[in-house]
Design a protein around this nucleic acid. Structure first.
Lengths: 201, 201
DNA sequence: ACTATTTCTTATCTTATGTTAACGTTTTGA
DNA sequence: TCAAAACGTTAACATAAGATAAGAAATAGT
């Protein structure tokens, strides 16, 4: 995929939120950079401030935390989604999240500085504010559901619910990542799957 | 507390995000309503669309879900915080969350319609977009931490972490609400407390 | 002031999960 | 192509959590 393809995918994506005329888009796109993250390269690490937001034109990334030397997967992002250690990006403080490319990944990125410049540019400010609001709101809704699932559901229920949504995660992620994502260990997920199998046959 | 006190508290709160001049504030405040929610009255119920965002000038509310006839507390909001079933408010769909006043609560509210009107009013649009973005971002950061705690921590760790932050929740909420908030049963929290006591003495 | 309700603890029992390790299979990378 | 690494399942054991019930203490409401 070439840079202009990546950029036009990005444009299509953000125009779900706000539309830009050509003049605006030219200025906006001056703040964008297309880059490739090779498999296993890091988009964010725990010690550093995550200074970028990325749009995944192609590929996938995995979010994880390290606890007691163990790697615990918390989330994934795929093509046509955004990626960032948001809290770190927004607060300017180091996050506790690592983000790593699962495959070679083509990204359209902009930095915190770029975002601040756009927010200070009268020609873009309003639309960038709006874009930011709508994206944040959308994530808020997702997070609300995820938190509710931890409070109201058992691990087995969370897994069957994930099955019922048929999310991409199921096809594309190894099971032990899915287990972490559900808040359990890989061994436990394997047992849950066994229970469900026995129950249905 | 009278209405103007409530309104000026609200103004002080949102001016942490954006500042309004007098003309703007006059228009903004025309969209605001001060109301009282008596103890045990509902701000939101699962069947209905949550059409309001509230600012708590005084009082406190509890968010909960009903599962198998049981009431599971998910969150709290206190004075000087916002309250809404955000996903419902943002999507216009019924939520699954109930929100109930824990004590008589004084609210400054605006409806979805008010928000849309403000977003369409050129005099306010920019600042309201910005306000919305910053509030959503702040919640995003909180939610991110909360999700990480479910994935990386045991219930006991979540509780000791809550203790270490000394959050208001601890002083003002009965323990079985806190248990739900941590994703466990009240009985289990009681046992965790026992374990911690024995461990320290 | 007194009763009803709520809250918290404790006990018992059952069940699910975490931990560790072993094994076979699949995938990866050189 | 071949060795190393990653992956999924299973087993055994220890631990923690859920469910239920009972009882004491605190609180609320009248």
């Amino acid at each position: 995929m070439d840079n202009s393809t990546a950029l036009s995918l990005f444009r299509k994506c953000i125009e779900k939120y706000v539309e830009f005329n050509e003049a605006e888009w030219i200025i906006f796109s001056q703040h964008l950079k297309v880059s490739i993250l090779k498999k296993k390269q890091y988009f964010a690490t725990p010690e550093k401030v995550c200074d970028n937001v990325g749009y995944i034109a192609d590929g996938a990334v995995r979010y994880f935390h390290i606890k007691d030397g163990q790697d615990i997967t918390g989330y994934f992002s795929f093509e046509n989604e955004f990626v960032s250690s948001y809290k770190s990006f927004l607060t300017g403080q180091p996050g506790f999240t690592s983000i790593q490319a699962l495959t070679d990944t083509i990204l359209v990125t902009f930095t915190r500085k770029d975002m601040d410049q756009m927010l200070s540019n009268p020609m873009l400010a309003y639309k960038v504010e709006r874009f930011g609001r709508l994206v944040a709101e959308q994530y808020l809704c997702c997070y609300e559901d995820r938190i509710a699932s931890f409070i109201t559901q058992t691990p087995e229920e969370r897994y069957t619910h994930l099955l019922s949504t048929g999310r991409e995660i199921l096809q594309r992620m190894p099971q032990h990542y899915i287990a972490n994502y559900l808040g359990i260990t890989p061994v436990s997920l394997s047992r849950i799957r066994r229970r469900l199998l026995v129950g249905t046959k």
